[in-house]
């Protein structure tokens, strides 16, 4: 007994170091394998408020640019609206709405790490829940990962954990959108079969088999494509429409039917087992 106590006393620094290192390792490994790291993220009260304060100062410097972007978007939406053929059949009844849209602002953006997260200034109090899709006026941005009362973190498409269903516009060839961490304006589309005809400049949009994003949200254009190692499918480099380094206004999409879809899928899985 005496020897054990002596041992602990002699190596107390080393043991403390091992203890702290184990905590950090456990948390890190856990976050790599598990979908979300629930407590330790920048959506908490302290970090959220600090980011909010600084972003409320710095946003003033980009207001001009931001206004132009929003006017541009309004112009596009108005053009769509005025040229809609069957205006009478458009029923904006709440019963017919599939997606609710929540507008928000980015208060912290990151794009230099392998796993990037964006913090936004709306949280569960505004109806934001995990697994909602996030887009900008130019295209797709990511998926909500954690929420607190007033803030939420978004898993950016520039994140090695991100896998989003995407397709080539006007076709039914689906693949997964991933990121190889090399360039923050380029993402990769994998699992497109080699028989599919491709052209540089083709547009890539979100696919239909996701309950997070509606179909046909723009992502980017094909910059380069190669066959992968097994020569069976393409690996495509996509230049994003979004400038990931300068993102301010965003929209969070709430799929009203998502819970129903998930419930149904879970039930089907249970039945088939």
């Amino acid at each position: 007994m005496q020897q054990i106590i002596n041992f602990i006393l002699r190596y107390k620094n080393f043991l403390l170091y091992l203890f702290l290192l184990t905590i950090s390792f456990a948390l890190t490994v856990h976050s790599h394998s598990y979908h979300r790291s629930k407590y330790f993220n920048s959506s908490n009260w302290l970090t959220g408020n600090i980011y909010k304060t600084t972003s409320s100062i710095t946003t003033y410097f980009g207001l001009n640019e931001e206004n132009k972007k929003l006017v541009e978007e309004n112009k596009r939406l108005h053009t769509l609206l005025f040229n809609l053929k069957k205006e009478d059949s458009m029923q904006l009844d709440t019963a017919n709405i599939n997606y609710k849209v929540i507008a928000s602002q980015v208060i912290k953006n990151s794009y230099g790490l392998p796993r990037n997260y964006i913090t936004i200034n709306k949280g569960s109090i505004n109806g934001i829940k995990p697994d909602m899709g996030v887009i900008t006026s130019n295209g797709i941005l990511g998926i909500v990962e954690n929420t607190s009362k007033n803030f939420a973190t978004v898993q950016s498409i520039l994140n090695t954990k991100s896998r989003i269903n995407a397709k080539i516009k006007n076709t039914n060839h689906y693949g997964s959108l991933v990121w190889d961490t090399k360039d923050f304006n380029t993402v990769q589309l994998v699992d497109i079969e080699r028989l599919v005809p491709l052209k540089i400049g083709d547009t890539i949009v979100t696919g239909a088999s996701s309950s997070i994003f509606p179909e046909n949200i723009p992502i980017g254009i094909i910059k380069k494509f190669d066959l992968n190692n097994s020569q069976s499918s393409y690996s495509i480099d996509i230049k994003l429409f979004n400038n990931m380094a300068a993102i301010k206004s965003i929209y969070v999409l709430d799929n009203v039917q998502r819970e129903e879809i998930i419930e149904l899928e879970a039930k089907t899985n249970n039945d088939s087992q």
Binding site: Y17, L20, L21, I23, S24, F25, L27, T28, H30, S31, S37, F40, N41, S42, N44, L46, T47, I50, Y51, K108, S110, L113, R115, N116, Y117, T119, T153
Partner: peptide
Amino acid sequence: VDLFSDTVAIHAAATVT
């Protein structure tokens, strides 16, 4: 620093070392 940059505990592990 980890909390702010959403890196879980990587900064912590490196700094403790």
